[in-house]
Design a protein around this nucleic acid. Structure first.
Length: 360
DNA sequence: AAGACGGGGAA
DNA sequence: TTCCCAGTCTT
């Protein structure tokens, strides 16, 4: 008579999740075919705080342009930022680029198969390192993203915001204890698919859940209230003027943003906190009448940590100041060049509106 | 421990 | 509108 484990002990959380994954999981994501370390890495970085639907087209475009670690390392940062333009969290792109260059210098042009070496690379934390090793190599490391936190908080009935260090530590311990002995790549993907499609934040499908048996939140009627949401606080507001200076030939003046802060190193419109400073900047860089600037429809843009209101002012025909030439931080850009630059999403939208396709 | 860092989609 | 999401880095 075989013992319990001979039957497969297929009652564990991991075994049930894997069986569900075989039937209902996502097996056609672009980074799964082929599932190379580089493609897994890129997908994991893009997927940080960003949903699959949004990532897929960016991923396809990125790997088509830069096919491996070496190509990424050789590419100029501006090209990487252009490929990232619209995804947000641009530090991810800068870190990705820097990490690729370090891989060339220190790891023979490949991603290291080592947790600590991966975590030492910029942009890779413990969760992403685990996800890379598990998916690319099948190594036994847990991950800890929003999906896993939600699933574990419910299944074990753990209250309190999962971002709390003490709770997060407890979740890591639980996640490590629940790892299967094999099929780590599938298990890692299964957790994310499960959290994203079934054990969702709102209206989870407990009725068809493969692990509803044993779920503490379900048994205690606490599914809707777990995980405990992050304590909220009011967002500060900030406003600024942005200058849309156009030349007779249709080119527009763009300025590279500072290397730190929001939209770091991206190309954007010149920005000033108010008219006084905007007028000064205008006088130093342009020939024309500041007061002739036309106010355009304001742009409202929400960030995680504050709300930004941008008031665009447009000049249809100004000339560059004689002393001001194009340089690394200031450029007159033709419409056709916009696609090749890293530009914040709301600014790109404004430019697309004001400089319609086919215009000079 | 808390704040910084983007953008899109869902409720 | 508000909240959330395949986190990580800096202070």
């Amino acid at each position: 008579m075989p013992g319990n484990d001979a039957i497969g002990a297929d009652d564990t959380f991991a075994a049930r999740l894997l069986a569900w994954f075989d039937r209902c999981g996502r097996h056609d994501l672009p980074w799964q075919h082929p599932r190379t370390p580089y493609r897994v890495w890129l997908s994991e970085i893009m997927l940080q705080q960003t949903q699959v639907r949004v990532v897929v087209p960016y991923f396809e475009r990125f790997v088509a342009a830069l096919q491996d670690v070496g190509a990424l390392a050789r590419a100029p940062l501006d090209e990487v930022l252009a490929l990232w333009s619209g995804l947000g969290y641009y530090a991810r792109a800068r870190n990705l680029h820097a990490a690729a260059r370090r891989c060339v210098e220190q790891h023979g042009g490949q991603l290291p198969r080592d947790l600590d070496a991966l975590v030492a690379l910029p942009g890779i934390g413990r969760s992403t390192a685990g996800a890379i090793l598990a998916q690319a190599w099948g190594d036994r490391f847990p991950i800890m993203d929003g999906n896993v936190k939600r699933v574990l908080a419910r299944w074990h009935g753990i209250g309190g915001w999962p971002g709390t260090p003490a709770i997060e530590k407890r979740l890591w311990t639980i996640a490590a204890a629940q790892l299967p002995d094999r099929r780590m790549a599938d298990y890692t993907q299964a957790q994310m698919d499960f959290g994203a499609t079934l054990c969702t934040r709102y209206d989870p499908a407990c009725i068809v859940c493969p692990v509803h048996d044993g779920c503490v939140a379900l048994r205690e009627g606490r599914v809707a209230e777990l995980p405990t949401p992050k304590p909220g606080k009011p967002l500060p507001e900030r406003s600024a003027l942005v200058l849309l200076a156009r030349r007779g030939d249709g080119r527009v003046l763009l300025q590279r943003r500072p290397p730190t802060g929001v939209w770091a190193s991206l190309w954007s419109l010149p920005e000033a906190p108010g008219h006084e400073l905007a007028r000064d900047w205008f006088a130093r860089h342009l020939v024309g009448d500041y007061d002739a600037g036309e106010p355009l429809v304001p742009i409202a843009h929400g960030f995680t940590h504050y709300r930004l209101q941008l008031q665009p002012l447009q000049w249809r025909e100004v000339a560059p100041h004689a002393r001001v030439a194009d340089n690394d931080d200031l450029r007159w850009v033709a419409r056709a060049e916009l696609a090749t630059l890293g530009i914040p999403a709301p600014i790109r939208k404004l430019l697309d509106t004001m400089l319609p396709e086919g215009s000079p």
